[in-house]
Nucleic acid binder design. Sequence first.
DNA 1: CGGGGAGTTGAATGCAGTCAACAAATGTGG
DNA 2: CCACATTTGTTGACTGCATTCAACTCCCCG
Lengths: 249, 249
Amino acid sequence: MKSNSTNLPKCENCAIRATALFGELETRHLDKARALRSAQVSYTTGEYLYHEGDIPTRAFTVYKGWVTLFKNLRNGDRQILRFALPGDFLCYKVGKNKHIDHSAIAVSDVTLCAFPIDRFREVISELPELSFALSSITETTIKRCHTALTTIASHPAETKVAYLLLSLYIREMSLLRQSTDRIPFPITQEDIADALGLTAIHVNRVFQSLRKKNLIVCKNRSLQVPDREALANVAKISLPELEQLMLGV
Amino acid sequence: MKSNSTNLPKCENCAIRATALFGELETRHLDKARALRSAQVSYTTGEYLYHEGDIPTRAFTVYKGWVTLFKNLRNGDRQILRFALPGDFLCYKVGKNKHIDHSAIAVSDVTLCAFPIDRFREVISELPELSFALSSITETTIKRCHTALTTIASHPAETKVAYLLLSLYIREMSLLRQSTDRIPFPITQEDIADALGLTAIHVNRVFQSLRKKNLIVCKNRSLQVPDREALANVAKISLPELEQLMLGV
DNA sequence: CGGGGAGTTGAATGCAGTCAACAAATGTGG
DNA sequence: CCACATTTGTTGACTGCATTCAACTCCCCG
């Protein structure tokens, strides 16, 4: 882990602000709110951001790279809860029970903006808008959690994989400025299996099948989706609906 | 739906306060916060509390009875997101996107305490503690959503069913004053199937198997769990852990 | 050049879905 | 209070999707 608390980039120009915490706040409140941020921190691939059971002191906004949030299970398996992409807000925890219920690992090299959680209490007192911004974020988190539930419960496996791939593709594409149709894709087939409650082997077979139908091109840690409509079809969701969920508020 | 806004029971003596929204607040703040509540409302079995896509104006605390929260899927199936029991907080929504992402139905006759959502904004401004109470609630919701995810993804079906039954049993038992080991159980096997991503037929077979092993007694809309440890074992979770999640904050 | 992680393939097994029919319980109107 | 309709629960036979186990390839990195 590497930390940097000087020369931080300005929030108002931040490429990801629209989708991040401060995107919920009006510009005139930004200066007050920005005082929350203390540093940018970096982790390399495979490093833990925090462990299940920790009492977190800092919350994070992902600035660059991907993070997996997961729980370790009794039987040695792990359940991936979600993949956090740039703009996502992690590890905010103010309830009575102070322990966090999951772990987080950098799946690629990541940079995060760190916010001491204590300071939220103070700022909210003088800027109640912040509390609604936070609510808005957690509502999105719950909404995504609900669709994750729905996806994992759905059948067959092809539907689940299609849904996950398309979600990640849409979110990452919206973050890329350049005109490319290929996104960096740092997660493994095993990660996907752990996210969807499948085996890596079966995920692999589904990948073959999707490739054969020309629905995905996935190699060298990158992913292309030539025809989103077609993939959305397999995922049994309407494309506009999914885009609204992934990009909209 | 039936509404009553006079002679409301007092929050400080409420049997469910410990686990409900105001349980998060200290007693000295209760009078300010109680001003939020506007009425008690009742619904009969099968009635909708709200529909997916609605713009909610009121949030609810379940006072009596059970509620299912669910989404209707493209293919006609429905995914049950969770069962809400007395003390649970529903339908709070303050984010930019004002539409709610799921529907809610009374599975038994229910009584709810209703709170106009608008008024939360005002009260939070003068009582920031309320915003942390709300955060605490949503953190619990997310935590339960995470374990639901983990449960649905887990194998085999017996594990899932055991987990759900035990969760509901533990929660409902803690609400019953009398010394009984039997809880009212208003949901159907199909509800359970819709919650876990299984077919009703297969849930039935799992029920048979659990009955044969004397792990559950389920008839006439009631449920007994003679040996919680044993059922927790099948559910692949430690009993203390589950109790902490269901009862603790 | 060697090692390890990730991906790929095949064969065999088994869990859960589907279809169909029926039984039991519940609710409704006559 | 009974007759009927509807919902919920139960059982059996069959099918098929996903898991398991094992072996092997490819690629990246040291």
